[in-house]
Write a protein that binds this DNA or RNA. Structure first.
Lengths: 107, 107
DNA sequence: TTATTTTATCGTTAATTAACGATTAAAGAA
DNA sequence: TTCTTTAATCGTTAATTAACGATAAAATAA
């Protein structure tokens, strides 16, 4: 059993926290769901749908992108955002691993 | 517009974000893992292990508790913290549901 | 060329978070 | 009773976040 002062610097702990943090706002979860629906992929579309300013949506998109959960491909004057399969896969594995670890040892 | 301004207020979206936010700090993930190990359960123990002040650990414990992920039972002068099976179960189901939803529709 | 469209970034403000030491309150020991 | 232990809370500071409108940059249209 590793000492826990290690655990704060542990790569997977940090990465899990990073991913969770990116999910830690309703707007960002909503955006991920919209992208999953594939009905929308541009910042402008999302801005029309969510009750947020364009700059705010852009900021949330940036957060999701820098956490590796989405990609952004410039298409002419717009940017097409899309779920990043690798990131989503990581989200899936990292968080399911965590919750499994927690669940099986639960009181 | 209706759909998604709904989605920001959507109960499960908000709850997912709340849970994710609680996980969104390395110290809180580390604490959950420590509690899962069951080698420790008191604030003082955790404080000895993590490189954080007692008040900081207490603050993180409070955050985890208010997100419903842990319980805290007063035992005399100390408080025994424990993973909350209901909360962990919810974390498991909510986040796996989300990641499944995102994964299966991924680009 | 100029105008329009779209997104990113800037600049600001308010709110929240994280960290710490100090203090308080409560339980148990002496 | 008083002393010690433990965790919670207070008070503060610094950093980060979220929100917005305004502006800039880049691609395309006119």
């Amino acid at each position: 059993m590793k000492t826990a002062s290690l655990s704060l610097d542990d790569r997977s702990v940090r990465r899990s926290a990073e991913i969770a943090k990116a999910l830690g706002h309703p707007a960002r979860i909503a955006i991920l769901k919209l992208l999953a629906d594939r009905t929308t992929c541009f910042c402008g579309d999302i801005t029309e749908i969510l009750p947020l300013a364009q700059s705010t949506v852009s900021q949330h998109l940036k957060a999701l992108k820098s956490a590796g959960l989405i990609t952004g491909e410039v298409e002419g004057v717009r940017t097409c955002y899309c779920l990043n399969p690798d990131g989503i896969q990581e989200l899936q594995s990292v968080l399911s691993e965590l919750s499994t670890e927690l669940i099986k040892t639960c009181c």
